[in-house]
Design a protein around this nucleic acid. Structure first.
Length: 226
DNA sequence: AACTTTGTCAACCGCCTATCT
DNA sequence: TAGATAGGCGGTTGACAAAGT
């Protein structure tokens, strides 16, 4: 399909219907092939975006509730502009929606405070500056360990300053897993380049703390009953 | 009433990573 | 193993409506 023939801009109702039908037939994959098969003069990316942000079932289209807003603010404070990741915590909401909402919210905040600093800090949360490297993660780890607040559970999300989808996925997985297991705190040391990745976590069983270590490279549990 | 500003939303763009061949 | 392709993500833009002057 030639680029100059591709349609852009708002979607028409019949295009939505066609896309919905073809996704129902072929599933949510191979978007380029799907776009061709549908006869829509749209790129695969455009089809995917339309589906993910608008046509997908179980999407909420209404206003963001107060609870959702609190969650967005909280997660954004923890993770920064990881919209897709934040969206995964809000069923029915898309990353685009949350991103848009945040931008509106951010503008309001800036107007209220009248400080450019606010924008900077909100754009670059955590770490007192942007995490340019994984060194920052290590520093944060050290800070946390020495902090007077160290009695509080260390959240897996504190390691969210990662850059690759792989890192994000691993971090997400740890986060979800720890929630599922009702784990107090997770410490995560990820070196994805060397596949020497591990994280440790603490659980309480009958009031006793138990620290365990998950080693990605060997996929084994090392239990430390301290 | 007319114009300007602000807010909201949908969509596109470019980059990066994963997967395929 | 390298190159090509597909998919995912965050940033940005532009259209439109509502609110303000």
């Amino acid at each position: 399909m030639q680029d100059q023939k591709l349609r852009k801009g708002p979607w028409f109702e019949d295009e939505d219907e066609r896309l919905t039908a073809i996704v129902g037939l072929l599933g949510e994959r191979r978007w380029d092939a799907l776009a061709n098969a549908s006869g829509l003069r749209r790129s695969g990316k455009s089809c995917r975006l339309r589906w993910m942000n608008y046509l997908r079932p179980n999407l909420k289209h209404g206003r963001i509730s107060e609870e959702e807003e609190k969650l967005i603010l909280q997660l954004h404070q923890q993770w920064g502009n990881k919209w897709a990741r934040i969206a995964r915590r809000l069923p029915g909401r898309t990353d685009n929606e949350i991103k848009n909402y945040w931008r509106s919210h951010l503008r309001r905040e800036c107007q209220v405070h009248g400080q450019e600093k606010v924008e900077h800090e909100l754009t670059v949360p955590n770490c007192e500056g942007i995490a340019q490297s994984r060194d920052c993660i290590l520093e944060k780890d050290e800070i946390s360990e020495n902090s007077s607040e160290s009695s509080e559970a260390f959240q897996p999300s504190d390691y969210a300053i990662m850059r690759s989808p792989y890192e994000n996925r691993v971090s997400d997985w740890i986060s979800e897993w720890s929630n599922y297991k009702n784990i107090d705190g997770v410490k995560h040391n990820l070196d994805y380049c060397s596949a020497d990745s591990c994280f440790c976590y603490t659980t309480k069983i009958n009031g006793e703390s138990e620290t365990s270590l998950w080693d990605f490279s060997s996929s084994i549990w090392n239990i430390d009953y301290s």
